[in-house]
Amino acid sequence: MTAASRRRPSHTVLVAHPSAELYGSDRVMLESVSGLVDDGWRVVVAVPTDGPLIAELRRRGASVELCPSPVLRKSVLTPRGFVRFVRTALVSTVQGSSLLRRERPALVYVNTITVPLWPVLARLRGIPVLTHVHEGEASASAVMRRILALPLFLSRRIVVNSRFSTGVLTSSFRSLGERSEIVYNAVPGPGTRTDPRPRLDGPLRVTYIGRLSPRKGVDVAIGAVAQLRDRGVEADLHVVGSVFPGYEWYEKELTETVGRAGLNDSVRFHGFQPSVWDIVGSGDVVVVPSRVDEPFGNTAVEALLAARPVIASATSGLLEATAGYRTAVTVRPDDATALADALQGTIDGWDATAQAVTADADEAERRHSVSTYRRRIADIVRSAARR
């Protein structure tokens, strides 16, 4: 008899998540949920808003509860944002406590450190907490890093997605780093790989996937394409992703930049896409031009899984995610010229790159195996929930 079959069906894990979208940490959480469902747990996921994540959670066998939750974002530092944060916290305390009373979970799985109220509510009811850390804000002040890390002391177990993120925790509180366990993100690849073009006839096809925000450096990618054009090198940029609410000004700024540079025929905005594989497969190279620290580099790994070379900023978790791959190149952050040089280098070395991408894709599949990730998460949760 397996551990899953011995466990009473009423045993529940409640997963607290800060959004209902389908970006990096959202997709990793889906694999955590699948691992728990496969292990026999009843999984309830609490999200603050409606969104595309909900249908995918239900498809994987989880129940979903809409429950407001205060989320730590930069807007909290403004007077209006702080008032909104406090108001949401009061409502969340009532509804979150009610949800915990009703579900009586064996464990609360807090996905990211941006929802600090859930560990408090769980521990007040004597429920063990596991926190999965997806953040690594090394550029934040020491005081801010310590404030963000404080709720982790309420966690029985801490899972961290990279050595870099562990280092950030250790720099705040050494004991937290010592209690953390690294589990690299599960990153599913495409159902079928599309071979790269044997020859780069026509413009170089560049792809950006991710949030549209200043920290992600989308404008740097646009600047690099503009520089290539000035050098007489043809390149098209396909931008896949949307903005956080409140950052609409940045999207407008990007479109205005494209217009002023005369790149309307070379830069296309696709908005959010539930699946990116067709766009990645029709492209030649993926760029990850982040300006600031990234705890890991899911997009870089996705490019490699799709058998596409990747050019990423030489910073934080991106260095960790791209290490050891022949077709991964890193460049100075916030430097459009360095990115343009690397893109031109991709063209010049295309024959060797096209031959090496298959081996890199195979290695990425091994490192970020979905099945291995699911088993590890299930084992950790089972251990943390055992009283």
Rank of each mutant, 00 (worst) to 15 (best):
G271M: 12
V370M: 00
G61R: 07
R59V: 11
T112R: 05
D293C: 12
V45W: 00
E302P: 09
R291F: 03
A62V: 04
G223R: 11
I311T: 12
I209A: 14
P196E: 00
I182R: 13
H270L: 12
N185Y: 00
R231Y: 03
I347R: 15
E31A: 01
V115A: 04
L30F: 00
V43H: 06
R291G: 11
E21S: 13
T353S: 10
D278H: 08
V240G: 01
G136S: 04
A3V: 11
L263A: 10
M1Q: 12
E294F: 03
Q95E: 13
A55V: 09
E178C: 04
D39H: 06
G345N: 13
D341E: 14
W118N: 00
V15L: 15
R157W: 00
V187S: 12
A321Y: 06
D284E: 01
I209N: 11
V285F: 08
E248G: 13
T114D: 11
L90V: 15
R60D: 04
R84P: 00
P289G: 09
H134M: 00
T194C: 13
V280Y: 01
S171T: 04
E137W: 12
P333T: 05
P79G: 09
A378T: 02
G61I: 07
V220A: 09
L304S: 09
P190Q: 07
H134P: 02
D360P: 08
E135Q: 08
D230K: 14
V28M: 01
S180F: 06
S63C: 08
V240F: 01
M1R: 13
S282A: 15
T170I: 02
A261S: 13
G271S: 12
R382V: 03
A384Q: 06
P68G: 01
T257L: 15
R7K: 07
S19E: 11
G24F: 00
R215H: 11
R260P: 03
V220F: 06
V220D: 10
R260I: 10
I182K: 11
E135G: 09
P289H: 10
T346A: 14
M29H: 09
P116K: 02
S32D: 09
V276I: 15
Q227K: 14
R260M: 11
L304C: 09
A361M: 12
